[in-house]
């Protein structure tokens, strides 16, 4: 066999064989991989919108997704906004739960972050940061309380606490939240969010 022919034949068959092998593996694992992703989102919605029994995807754009949480009767009880934005070091992905009228936050969950361990990474800390995000008035822009206070009672209705020593990370989260609430409000006004069209198991 001529060398050039042999080269073409060998490369083609290696490519074909591995291609078909990978296609099989891809099909076999596809379902599970997607299930994993779905589970993660669902677990977050149940956390941020208390009382959720099932959830719906209401809107999807790059780095900005809105899910609706429904109770047993299937009525929409709140929104879960999955959003990414720039933090101190890298992207922060979080999910914010709000009530249906978009006036009160229910809960904040950090999905993914790469802030400085020990400082900025405290945005994942329940006692230092997350608990201060429950039941905040988000009908106006939320603001940071500086310097930090000890209990939620000391904060005004639309204030959240700063993490001591990690002002930039706290501010990043605040900015992401304020932007996304504003964006969702705009979308509802424009009628782009309708209730319960596609169901997400």
């Amino acid at each position: 066999m001529k060398l050039s022919v042999q080269m073409v034949v060998v490369l083609t068959s290696v490519g074909l064989l591995s291609g078909s092998f990978l296609a099989t593996v891809g099909i076999l694992t596809k379902e599970r991989v997607e299930l994993n992703k779905q589970r993660e989102v669902e677990a977050a919605i149940i956390k941020v919108v208390p009382g959720t029994e099932s959830s719906t995807k209401l809107y999807e754009a790059k780095d900005f997704k809105v899910y609706g949480g429904k109770n047993q009767d299937g009525t929409l009880i709140g929104y879960g906004i999955l959003v990414s934005g720039i933090g101190f070091q890298d992207k922060i992905t979080l999910m914010l739960g709000t009530d249906i009228s978009l006036t009160k936050t229910t809960r904040l969950e950090i999905i993914e972050q790469k802030e400085t361990p020990g400082l900025g990474a405290k945005i994942e800390d329940e006692d230092v940061f997350l608990k201060f995000w429950e039941g905040r008035d988000c009908s106006q822009a939320i603001s940071l309380r500086k310097p930090a206070v000890k209990t939620a009672e000391e904060l005004a209705a639309s204030e959240v606490n700063t993490i001591t020593g990690a002002t930039i990370s706290s501010e990043s989260v605040l900015k992401i939240v304020n932007n996304s609430v504003e964006k969702l409000r705009q979308l509802i006004k424009e009628g782009q969010i309708q209730d319960g069209e596609q169901d997400v198991h």
Partner: peptide, 11 residues
Amino acid sequence: VADRFLAAYFP
């Protein structure tokens, strides 16, 4: 294969 396996079983 390894990548898909990890994504499917050890997310």
